[in-house]
Design a protein around this nucleic acid. Structure first.
Lengths: 211, 211
DNA sequence: GTCGCTAGATTGACTGGTCAGTCAGCCTGA
DNA sequence: TCAGGCTGACTGACCAGTCAATCTAGCGAC
């Protein structure tokens, strides 16, 4: 049963092991102050081996980001195609992001802090991918506008910005413990974020305010 | 009329000149890849003079941030105390931030990209100051909730996060040209951001949706 | 089964480039 | 005359990435 495939498999494991160590180190120290030697140590592996599996420190972060972000894009697009009203679609999108954080906070911290919010470094590199998420959200909004379910005086791109920005800020708040992050907070956040943003996007029914 | 004060004044000018050059260089290259020599060159000043006026490269960014952020905090608090309904208050806050960007895009780019969004570096250093902005917004929301003008099932801190996050994302979109930024966009953004977020925060008047 | 043989895995000392920050001394205006 | 503005060459620390050497697991030969 021992074959070359065996060797490949062990090699793939080592690669994963290094990548997982990188997640932990990047999450703990930030990409910039993470030394490659820290990653090697965290992975229990010699310094040079990191460069056997990866071309550079950057490549590791790029790979971590792209791997996860493509799941996110799939999730949004699937929500768009399989659900039938904008609230459910946006709720599924927000829910996926929030669940990603709940289940894998270190990876999501790295992705948000080091890529998505790092507009001058990796954010630039991955701008096209990040934009695809905005676009997918904007498409949901635009369709809802066409169906008369959302007001049309807010451009769909603008609405997508607000929606995505609100979610990202919320995760950032959790990551840096500015805002409480217990199990019940995640669930209520999912509901309230959709409620609030969609509430603002749906046609107003002229509720006169006091004053 | 020429006295020691004259000298002090010239010195203060030089200091400003260096700080202004730093804004331009940080905006153009980002803090990390901005070398102190770039700043000196941009300011038309010898390398060493930068260290005559500033302790470190970090100090320059800290000073730029704090100088502007305190204006922002004042503006939010003033809006809170001088206006009488939450829409106007939040509108003034959003308006101030948007106008800051309109009038001084380079400085605002630096503040947002290098501090506010840079959660692992300067964002950490200034977390307390940034938090004060969230808190000031949350206070506006909390007061409105107490007055029955905003729904109470969304916590005020949560709402503040959404509101601030939406604005910051919008500015980020402008900064990186993901979203159009012409004069009319600034004005409509002010109105729509308040309209959308407040719309979501005001009590719903049970508008039944189709489907 | 066991014995070399080889490709690929693994090691870690070393190098090269980059800059922030220092410092010894010059210049100038009061 | 001299305080303090101003100069720019220099240093020391840091670290990503290289590389030559070593190890090991699988493979065929016998």
């Amino acid at each position: 049963m021992a074959t070359t495939a065996n060797r490949d498999e062990r090699a793939a494991d080592k690669r994963r092991q290094i990548l997982d160590a990188a997640i932990r180190v990047f999450a703990r120290q930030g990409f910039h102050s993470a030394r490659v030697s820290d990653i090697a140590e965290e992975a229990g592996v010699a310094y040079g081996l990191v460069y056997h599996y990866f071309d550079s420190k950057d490549q590791m972060l790029n790979e971590l980001f792209t791997e996860r972000w493509s799941l996110l894009l799939d999730a949004i697009r699937q929500a768009d195609s399989q659900l039938d009203n904008p609230r459910a679609k946006l709720g599924a999108a927000a829910g996926f992001i929030i669940d990603s954080y709940r289940h894998d906070p270190e990876l999501m911290k790295v992705i948000i802090v080091e890529v998505t919010r790092a507009a001058n470094s990796f954010g630039r590199t991955h701008l096209a991918e990040i934009r695809q998420a905005y676009d997918a959200i904007a498409k949901i909004v635009a369709d809802a506008q066409r169906a008369g379910e959302f007001r049309t005086d807010v451009s769909s791109e603008f609405a997508a910005m607000l929606f995505y920005g609100a979610i990202e800020q919320l995760l950032t708040g959790w990551i840096f413990e500015v805002v409480p992050a217990a199990d019940e907070d995640y669930d209520s956040a999912k509901a309230l974020i959709v409620e609030t943003i969609c509430g603002g996007l749906e046609p107003r029914v002229a509720a006169e305010l006091p004053g």
